[in-house]
């Protein structure tokens, strides 16, 4: 590949990256209008567990307890007085923490959030360590004896 072509290539890459970032920022932050009530109900019921089912969310479950919670969520959303978080907090106050599908980030429950990060750091650390070791074992170091030998050989050659 000629030098000019590779420079051009680099400029295209830069352009592609910039376009991608611009599109991401534009698409990721643009306002799509206020959420509909139905979307809010879906979002809220997805993080509340149905109290009589086994680990299913109210959104997923077809049980009657889930139906009534869904109706209550719909009523509160329709009245428009509470935010999504307040409605979830209301449900927690009413049924206890067993209706929360998302573990809390305090106390013992926080471990479920912390451990994956810890695992990732450990795994990456091991990988970095392995590459370090490989690069040390791979590239041989030159000792004084080696230099002496080469110099000797060069002298002999002259």
């Amino acid at each position: 590949m000629s030098n000019a072509a590779s420079v051009k290539n680099k400029w295209t890459w830069l352009l592609l990256t910039l376009v991608a970032i611009a599109l991401l920022v534009f698409g990721g932050t643009r306002d799509t209008g206020p959420k509909t009530q139905s979307d809010r109900i879906d979002a809220i019921t997805k993080v509340i567990a149905c109290p009589t089912c086994q680990g299913e969310s109210v959104y997923v479950s077809r049980a009657s307890a889930a139906e009534s919670i869904r109706a209550e969520v719909a009523r509160q959303v329709a009245s428009g007085q509470k935010t999504d978080d307040e409605i979830v907090a209301f449900m927690e106050a009413r049924f206890g923490s067993r209706v929360l599908l998302v573990p809390r980030s305090t106390g013992l429950d926080a471990l479920v959030w912390v451990l994956p990060v810890f695992a990732l750091v450990c795994a990456l650390g091991t990988l970095v360590f392995a590459f370090r070791r490989w690069s040390v074992s791979g590239s041989s170091t030159v000792s004084d004896a080696d230099i002496e030998m080469v110099e000797q050989a060069l002298r002999d050659a002259e």
Binding site: V47, A49, L100, L101, P103, L108
Partner: peptide, 19 residues
């Protein structure tokens, strides 16, 4: 994880889809 919490603190928690 719910088993761990139940064993240690005798409390029921759910680790659900959002997690």
């Amino acid at each position: 994880f719910p088993l761990v919490v139940e064993a240690l603190q005798d409390r029921t928690i759910i680790v659900g889809e959002p997690f």
